[in-house]
Simulated assay, not measured.
Amino acid sequence: MKPHITISYCPKCGWLLRAAYMAQELLTTFEEELGGVTLKPSEIAGSYQVLLGEEVIFDRKRDGHFPEIKELKQTVRDKVSPGKSLGHSDRKAEA
Rank of each mutant, 00 (worst) to 15 (best):
A20I: 07
K92Q: 06
A20C: 09
W15Y: 06
L86G: 08
A19N: 12
A93T: 12
V80L: 12
P41I: 08
V80F: 11
I44E: 03
G36R: 10
K84I: 10
T75I: 08
K2I: 09
P67T: 02
V80C: 05
S47I: 00
C10D: 15
K2C: 10
P82I: 14
E43S: 14
P82D: 07
I7K: 07
S42T: 10
G87F: 02
E31S: 06
I44R: 03
M22T: 06
Y21F: 14
E33I: 14
P82G: 08
M22F: 05
K70Y: 01
S81F: 06
T28W: 07
E71W: 13
K40Q: 15
G87W: 04
V80E: 12
S42A: 14
C13S: 15
V80A: 11
S47A: 04
K40R: 15
H88L: 11
L16V: 14
E55Q: 09
L26M: 14
Q74N: 11
E71D: 13
F30A: 01
L39H: 07
K61T: 00
M1D: 05
V56S: 03
C10N: 05
E68Y: 12
T38F: 05
T75S: 01
K84M: 14
S47K: 01
V37G: 09
E32P: 01
Y21N: 08
D59E: 03
V56A: 02
S47P: 00
V37D: 02
L34R: 11
A19S: 12
C10Y: 12
A95H: 05
L26V: 08
P67E: 02
L34D: 10
T6M: 08
R62M: 03
C10H: 12
G53I: 10
